[in-house]
Design a protein around this nucleic acid. Structure first.
Lengths: 127, 127
DNA sequence: TCCTGAAGTTACGAATTGGTACCTACTGGC
DNA sequence: GCCAGTAGGTACCAATTCGTAACTTCAGGA
């Protein structure tokens, strides 16, 4: 096993690394996207919309995002309880960046698809 | 084990998810940052600069980025071999977004730090 | 009386991840 | 003759991650 030299958790360095780790939970972008487009939502609503997510993961992601100040959790101790999540100001600060990222991603996807079909056509023609 | 309902790998959906997964290899941002600030580099140089990365991880990340078209790999079959990595046009398309992301991350970090020291001062005063 | 629903929490376990160590080929230098 | 350096590849191994299933609390409805 050999002790890993230094524990070196939490690299002091890059704020980008921190923020990407934040955004990159398997479900995180879907959660943020849903909160952005459908507004504040209850736990169950989110769970239904972010299809495939387990309660455990959803809870964990929401707690992490709350801890980072990206969203707010409003708990009403009614029976049954009602918990509403909404984006904070900080959460909305990502709208712009995420929008651009999505745009770039979409463009690349389209370019790649065009490239692939071009190649396919070439192959068919060469045959 | 219980078959996981549906295999459902590669969710068709979100191009942002794809791109974030790309960016989020533990070392990816460091690699891109280095290539951006220090220009094209050889494998060994990168490995030395991205401190702590193992050859295995570095190779794997570089291959992934190459596959996504973010960087180019130039192999010269001299002895010893010389392999140079450089950002492609597509790689540079992320400069803007990553810059913003870094800016946001930095600002939040500063805000959080200010908040913490304020809290600490309050506690000390209340004592 | 038992079931349902909300919003989780917990225990367990399988799969993925990333690290370490060792291997390659080849040549130039001591 | 032996070692170093380049650019990895491979096997193995520990730790982390994520999913599933079962449990919780309390009130209202059939």
């Amino acid at each position: 096993m050999n002790a890993p030299a230094e524990p070196r958790k939490e690299s002091v360095s890059c704020p980008m690394d921190f923020i990407l780790r934040m955004l990159m939970g398997p479900w995180t972008t879907y959660i943020l996207y849903n909160l952005k487009t459908h507004g504040p939502q209850r736990f169950g609503e989110l769970k239904r919309r972010v299809s495939g997510v387990s309660a455990k993961m959803l809870t964990e992601r929401l707690r992490t995002l709350e801890g980072a100040g990206l969203l707010r959790r409003d708990y009403e101790a009614t029976i049954p309880p009602k918990v509403t999540y909404s984006l904070t100001k900080r959460g909305h600060e990502l709208d712009d960046v995420l929008g651009r990222l999505a745009e770039v991603g979409t463009r690349w996807e389209a370019e790649d698809a065009a490239h692939r079909s071009l190649r396919a056509a070439e192959l068919k023609a060469a045959e």
